[in-house]
Amino acid sequence: DHIPWITAVLPTVIICVMVFCLILWKW
């Protein structure tokens, strides 16, 4: 059976995008 890697990667991607947007917003 396949491991849904997207389910494991998606939260990390969302957190990175939120942090990236927060850094851009504070500049």
Score class of each variant (00 low, 15 high):
Ile6His: 04
Ile6Gln: 05
Met18Val: 02
Leu10Glu: 15
Val17Cys: 14
Val17Ser: 06
Lys26Cys: 07
Trp27Phe: 13
Met18Ile: 00
Cys21Glu: 12
Trp5Thr: 03
Ile15Ala: 08
Leu24Gly: 12
Pro11Lys: 07
Trp5Asn: 09
Asp1Thr: 11
Cys16Gln: 12
Cys21Ile: 11
Lys26Gln: 13
Ile3Ser: 02
Ile6Pro: 10
Ile15Pro: 06
Asp1Met: 07
Pro4Met: 15
Pro11Gln: 03
Met18Trp: 11
Trp5Tyr: 05
Ile14Leu: 01
Trp5Gly: 06
Trp25Phe: 04
His2Met: 15
Pro11Thr: 00
Val19Ile: 08
His2Cys: 15
Trp27Asn: 12
Val13Tyr: 01
Thr7Tyr: 00
Pro4Ala: 10
Ile3Pro: 11
Val13Ser: 09
Ile23Pro: 12
Cys16Thr: 09
Pro11Leu: 00
Ala8Lys: 12
Ile23His: 10
Lys26Tyr: 01
Cys21Pro: 12
Ile14Trp: 01
Val13Ile: 10
Ile14Met: 06
Ile23Ser: 04
Trp5Met: 14
Val19Arg: 11
Val13Glu: 12
Cys16Leu: 03
Val9Ile: 04
Pro4Phe: 05
Pro11Met: 00
Ile14Pro: 01
Cys16Ser: 05
Leu22Tyr: 13
Leu10Asp: 15
Lys26Met: 06
Pro11Ser: 00
Ile3Gln: 11
His2Pro: 08
Ile23Glu: 10
Ile14Gly: 00
Trp25Cys: 01
Trp5Leu: 00
Pro11Tyr: 00
Pro4Ser: 07
Pro4Gln: 09
Val19Asp: 03
Cys21Leu: 02
Pro4Ile: 00
Leu24Val: 09
Val19Ser: 11
Ile15Glu: 01
Val9Gln: 13
Leu22Phe: 08
Trp27Val: 13
Val9Ser: 03
Cys16Tyr: 04
Ile6Val: 08
Thr12Arg: 04
Leu10Tyr: 04
Ile14Phe: 10
Ile14Tyr: 09
Leu10Pro: 09
Thr7Asp: 03
Thr12Glu: 02
Leu22Asp: 09
Ile23Leu: 03
Thr12Leu: 01
Pro4Tyr: 03
Pro11Gly: 00
Leu24Gln: 09
Val9Phe: 01
Asp1Ala: 10
Ala8Asp: 03
Thr12Lys: 11
Leu10Ile: 03
Thr7Trp: 01
Trp5Val: 05
Leu24Met: 00
Phe20Val: 10
Val13Leu: 07
Cys21Gly: 14
Leu10Gln: 13
Val17Pro: 00
Val19Gln: 14
Cys21Val: 15
Ile23Val: 07
Val9Asn: 08
Val13Cys: 12
Ala8Tyr: 10
Val13Phe: 01
Pro11Asn: 08
Trp27Asp: 15
Met18Gly: 00
Ala8Arg: 13
Val17Leu: 05
Phe20Ala: 09
Ile3Arg: 07
Trp25Leu: 05
Pro4Asn: 06
Val17Asp: 06
Trp27Arg: 08
Cys16Ile: 00
Val19Cys: 15
Met18Pro: 08
Trp27Leu: 08
Phe20Arg: 02
Val17His: 14
Ile15Gln: 15
Pro11Phe: 00
Met18Tyr: 14
Val9Asp: 11
Cys21Thr: 10
Cys21Arg: 08
Asp1Phe: 13
Leu24Ser: 06
His2Thr: 04
Asp1Pro: 11
Leu22Ile: 05
Val17Phe: 11
Ile23Ala: 09
Ile6Lys: 07
Ile14Thr: 10
Cys21Tyr: 12
Leu10Lys: 13
Ile14Ser: 00
Trp5Glu: 06
His2Phe: 05
Ile3Trp: 06
Val13His: 01
Cys21His: 14
Ile23Cys: 14
Cys16Asp: 14
Trp27Lys: 05
Trp27Glu: 15
Ile23Trp: 15
